[in-house]
Design a protein around this nucleic acid. Structure first.
Lengths: 326, 326
DNA sequence: TTGTAAGCGTTATCAC
DNA sequence: GTGATAACGCTTACAA
């Protein structure tokens, strides 16, 4: 910048004003144009690090996650980066692979870089143990909660999701709807089930415990649970599976029994794992969790916090993706 | 650091030396210990930005991709971050969603931050058009190539992958092996096919054009192509599908014909899309592309370039993941 | 409308 | 062993 100023016969201050397009200081249009032209010509590139140091802001947001290598993690990263982009900020990433030591050291490194906020995203909807150092900077948790005061969370609305899935089956005329659920105790399991129950109750149907089964998230379990439901004396005609993988298993159970989907039994999944849902035959109607939106929300909440607003936990609603299994 | 120095009655220089554990300058052990203790006590945190400015290095690597939200992108990010971590560097991420304008502006922003290198990762194995600005800094392409001089690439070894998949079927005793391939022209398609052909030729088998079909990467196409192969007068007993999604379709074609996997027809996929491969019934034997390793390699190549070494394109071999479909 | 000069928080070179 | 002092590349009061 010094070279530029000398080249133009101006002071560094003037060049800085002109380049930053500041309106609170009067610079003649002619001068501004000369400066900009010279900057381009000489290939001048402002040094963001030096700007940070002088201006006392870094435009950097820290992103810590245990899972970049999943559709979930990637989606959040993408949303967060897009939102940061709009604010002319960049994302500094640490992926911990769940290792608490990497996590703690990573947070330290990010704080050394003076990130203006921290996004902490986890693979599973769970309670997270944050390194103590995060207190130093506004933090938003994604897909998890923490007892640490001041940390706010962005969570998917499991209840609404379960409700939407079940409503879809009801709308298609189904009256006996089975739930192939995740193991009890998980927020995802509890939430999806209460959405399911709310929808049935609203439709004036009675809750039948025999129609609700639970197990782990695998296709094998989905197969077993769905098989038991379909083998009931009065089997369900609709199946809400709490994950797409479980729905995959349910497909097999149905096919083995000669049941056509959706004619004989309709299936709704959860997660919208593109690879599974879109390519299952028939394609799976399922609930998409708002990954990218959660990333966007996290960065926006960080910005709001920085602006002095009080920020509360947020819950984001998924979206029913209609395909051909209902 | 000034406060610390004053608090200790030392100069800033001494504090800096002590904290950085420098051996080229003599500091008494006692002084060093005092400084470190005081730093901890006062909660002193070095300012990485200021260090960068003074030391003329940023320890920052730029990462531009069109696809964080895929297992592929996430895997590369994870590998790159892990490799950067070992070198005490951090990753600055821009996800372009394929938009050339975001890409170009993003690269500019990264250069403004004085990243020490750039990783450019694409979703599809393809030829990329890089913004001109990347010339300013060492660049490694991942999963793509460029005509720009000086840019090196990290690519998956498609031929080896096709070879390994076919060898697995041969090892299981199959002599008629069908290839459900991607559309012609793609590096993935050409490479996997030549691996397939090499394996067959080495085994002394003749190449039968009728056993090779191609189409797009979907399960539907996989179904169609596999169906045609299985309906041949002399059908193959083994199927190598160029993507796991295609293998998913092939499973359906086999099941519809009452063929058991792997007893009546064995299947090998490609990609190791966990969600599909691990949960297909039976679980799919497939070739895993080395995503994370590619990210690691990219960062290591950047480091080597920075160290003045001459770096060449690298090709990384995948790994056969044995499950139950052969 | 432009210039001067004092930071911003470090590292690095010397001299002592 | 330690301390001055000058960078590093910018922003920003304040003066002119």
């Amino acid at each position: 910048m010094d070279d530029l100023a000398r080249h133009l016969g101006l002071s560094r201050a003037t060049v800085s004003f002109a380049l930053n397009g500041r309106t609170d200081v009067r610079i003649s249009e002619a001068t501004r144009a000369r400066v900009v032209a010279a900057a381009r010509e000489l290939g001048y590139r402002p040094h963001a690090g030096a700007q940070s140091l002088a201006a006392q802001r870094t435009d950097l947001i820290g992103f810590v996650t245990d899972i970049p290598a999943s559709p979930f993690g990637g989606g959040i990263i993408h949303g967060a980066q897009a939102a940061a982009w709009r604010r002319h900020k960049l994302l500094l990433i640490v992926s911990s692979e769940g290792d608490p030591e990497i996590e703690a050291t990573g947070v330290e490194m990010l704080l050394d870089r003076r990130v203006e906020g921290l996004v902490y995203a986890t693979q599973m909807h769970r309670v997270a143990t944050l390194p103590a150092a995060v207190e130093a900077v506004p933090t938003v948790l994604v897909h998890c909660t923490s007892d640490r005061p001041g940390a706010v969370s962005v969570l998917p609305d499991e209840v609404e999701g379960g409700y939407a899935a079940t409503r879809r089956l009801l709308a298609a005329g189904h009256r006996r709807i089975g739930l192939v659920n995740l193991a009890a105790g998980l927020p995802a399991s509890t939430g999806r089930r209460s959405g399911y129950e709310r929808a049935l109750t609203e439709a004036g149907l009675e809750l039948e415990p025999a129609l609700v089964r639970q197990g782990d998230a695998t296709a094998t379990t989905g197969y077993d649970l769905a098989a038991r439901l379909l083998d009931l004396a009065d089997p369900p005609t609709g199946l809400f599976c709490a994950t797409d993988r479980m729905a995959m298993g349910a497909y097999d159970a149905a096919k083995e029994r000669g049941l056509r989907i959706p004619e004989d039994v309709a299936v709704v999944g959860f997660d919208n794992q593109e690879i599974v849902a879109a390519y299952l035959r028939p394609a799976l109607t399922t609930v998409a969790l708002p990954f990218a939106e959660m990333g966007v929300a996290a960065v926006e909440m960080l910005a709001a916090t920085a602006a002095g607003e009080r920020v509360l936990d947020r819950t984001l609603t998924g979206r029913l993706v209609e395909r051909a299994s209902v």
